[in-house]
Design a binder for these strands. Structure first.
Lengths: 190, 190
DNA sequence: ACCTGAACACCGTTCAAGT
DNA sequence: ACCTGAACACCGTTCAAGT
């Protein structure tokens, strides 16, 4: 006699997104998921192959969300303005979803990581802006400089690593402004 | 009848530094330490209070090593050259000690993290260079921009996040050069 | 077809017992 | 004074058994 399903991939995924924000990656246990969807831990293996695959599902879900937000962020056509908007969107996402953000950039086993294409998709708009600012020859290096700065800033902000006082928001504005100037063609011999 | 000690803090610390490089933070288990120092896991609690305290010891040890290297890196007196040397030293340390590096910047419970002063000590030389380049008013923001960029770059490099091809070393040189220009006073209206 | 309890190998940690 | 085995509460995962 078939028993009706009490779990679903969607339910598990939603539970995963919620738990990773409250308890972090380490808190995302099979037990925690099972409690939340109202089932015993072994039953989860009817829907997912392993905890690592669950982490990948959660990471892909977050990546799609972030990519969607980035796609609608660069709208002015002004490369400098678009660059600042993309960076701001990235930072806002990280602040709203610190658990998902750290999952996306955590060093995890390959089978737990988001599909590699996500970073290509996510950086499409950025590459357009940096190409216009820095020129075709340097657009990849310029994009990497911006992403490294934004990623590093956000990671340090979330980790509470800015411990020398001062205004972190001011450091952000200073940073995006100066980095944009830096990658613009001939920044210091205009 | 007192038994002679077969463990020592030094031995445990050295084992910890070694294991974190081969097996990562998650691989640094009490079992792994015990195996390496030739004792059973419960005996470790005669020397350390908990695994978290061990993580802190390892982190502090790595922080002292990194700080020492940074202290001898900025020697030319030329602020731009010193800045590049400090960044390069940072990157070299991370490549030689990727496990320790990620431990230093991982989000961990407070009792597992390195003492907060380490980052103050480590950034002393950097602040001198950025103050000369950017001026006193902006030196903190400038230092945060450099650290965010370097940290973000290294984290992405170690995570294998540069997936769009291209020459990563060239992106590093491009980045440090342009970031230095960016924070220098009046970069685009000289 | 779905869910469960029991079991396994692993964690960190405590503690009484051995020397 | 130091080390140990046994035990506890937790992990992820497998699997035979129940409906």
């Amino acid at each position: 006699m078939p028993t009706p399903a009490r779990t679903s991939l969607e339910g598990i995924l939603k539970a995963g997104r919620a738990i990773i924000e409250t308890d972090g990656i380490d808190g995302l246990t099979m037990q925690a998921i099972a409690d939340r969807v109202g089932v015993r831990a072994p039953s989860l293996y009817k829907r997912i192959r392993s905890r690592n695959q669950l982490l990948r599902l959660v990471a892909n879900d977050a990546a799609a969300e972030l990519t969607g937000e980035l796609d609608t962020a660069a709208t002015t056509g002004d490369a400098r303005r678009d660059l600042a908007a993309l960076a701001r969107t990235f930072r806002d996402f990280a602040r709203r979803n610190p658990g998902a953000y750290s999952l996306l950039f955590a060093r995890l086993p390959d089978d737990a990581r988001a599909d590699p294409e996500w970073s290509v998709k996510a950086s499409a708009g950025l590459l357009i802006a940096t190409e216009r600012l820095a020129g075709t020859a340097d657009s990849l290096e310029a994009a990497r400089t911006v992403v490294a700065w934004a990623n590093g800033f956000i990671a340090m902000e979330l980790a509470g690593a800015f411990r020398l006082g001062g205004d972190v928001d001011r450091a952000w504005e200073y940073g995006i402004d100066h980095v944009a100037t830096a990658i613009a063609r001939r920044p210091n011999r205009a």
